[in-house]
């Protein structure tokens, strides 16, 4: 089991204040994070850009040293036993980098396998299995530079499994992949946890991905946990946090305008008006489900041309949740 308590990471970065002049600035990338990953389970780490997802993953995979807190992985201490931990964890990041383009898939895997000191005959067996597993059999002896994005990404996954890690940290693994390939990858990730009992930490921007895969989810914002729970709980909170409706109407009489404004301000909500080529489009944002009320109100006074309820957006939910949290902290 991986148990992290109060993990902290500060970056010191230089801020330019003029020509040749700079000031050191501390960025609190992770403020205090508790996190648990059980074998065979997939844990999601959700957050906006800059929330601290990559920083967390790099700390857990020993690439970054935490500035505070503690973490034990199967009884090993993240700081003290870093070299032992390297044998049982691995990391996979999205994107096309991080493999040797001029080597073949097999040569790439051989290289990393040897750095992990895997005995040769075992390594060969493992490479055969992994290449089969990620479906690169036919192209395994071709230089990686000739691969498509998806194939490079699959090689990246095989690389991440070369040391048969007990814990796997995946940083936006579906970044830039087509929907069908991303789907394959998700299936694959699931089987790694379910069939092979690996503990997986997965970061993502996409709530759907997290909902489909994860057993437990942490949402972080600006280095702090905003909430945690099962994906169902998270999804329902997200759904309740924000509702957006795009409505096209025929006309927008003043009476309706007043009525709408009074109604929305009573529930602390808002709307925007955009109109092009003589039509009126209103966009209502609210944290309540007011679809039927809106339709009733509008259809009384005008003709509704179209009505679209937008999918709740994770981004909006995170912002709302962080605001709520900040408010609670300020008033605690």
């Amino acid at each position: 089991m991986l148990i992290a308590k109060g993990l902290k990471k500060n970056y010191i970065s230089k801020e330019k204040t003029g020509f040749l002049k700079s000031r050191l600035k501390t960025v609190e990338a992770i403020k205090s994070l508790d996190l648990t990953i059980r074998p065979g389970k997939i844990v999601g780490l959700l957050g906006l850009n800059g929330a601290g997802k990559t920083t967390t993953i790099k700390m857990l995979s020993t690439l970054l040293e935490p500035d505070g807190g503690s973490c034990s992985i199967d009884g090993l201490d993240l700081t003290r036993d870093a070299f032992k931990i390297k044998h049982i964890v691995n990391m996979i990041a999205g994107g096309e980098r991080m493999v040797y383009w001029r080597l073949t898939a097999r040569e790439n895997l051989e290289y990393f396998g040897k750095l992990y000191n895997i005995p040769n005959n075992e390594l060969n067996k493992r490479i055969d299995n992994l290449i089969e597993f990620v479906g690169l059999n036919e192209r395994a002896n071709e230089a990686v530079e000739k691969y498509s994005k998806g194939m490079k990404q699959r090689l990246q996954i095989a690389r991440g499994l070369i040391n048969d890690p007990k814990y796997l940290f995946m940083d936006e693994p579906t970044l830039g992949l087509d929907a069908p390939i991303a789907r394959d990858l998700r299936k694959f990730t699931k089987s790694l946890a379910n069939k092979e009992g690996k503990g997986i930490l997965l970061t993502s921007h996409y709530i759907n991905e997290i909902e489909e895969l994860c057993d437990y989810v942490y949402i972080i914002n600006q280095g702090q946990k905003v909430m945690e729970g099962s994906p169902k709980e998270i999804a329902s909170i997200v759904a309740n946090c924000t509702n957006k409706y795009h409505i096209k109407i025929n006309s927008f009489p003043d009476k309706l305008k007043v009525q709408l404004e009074t109604y929305l301000s009573a529930i602390q909500s808002d709307y925007q008006l955009d109109g092009a080529d003589g039509s009126f489009e209103i966009c209502v944002s609210t944290h309540k489900d007011i679809q039927s009320e809106l339709i009733a109100m509008l259809s009384q006074q005008t003709k509704i041309i179209s009505f679209a309820a937008m999918e709740p957006k994770l981004e909006d939910a995170i912002i709302t949740l962080s605001e709520v949290r900040a408010y609670e902290q300020a008033h605690a």
Partner: peptide, 18 residues
């Protein structure tokens, strides 16, 4: 730049050996 340096450091390989 290619990101592979980080992956080398991710492994327990001897740094001097590399």
């Amino acid at each position: 730049i290619s990101g592979t340096l980080e992956l080398i450091y991710l492994t327990p390989a001897s740094r001097l050996g590399v």
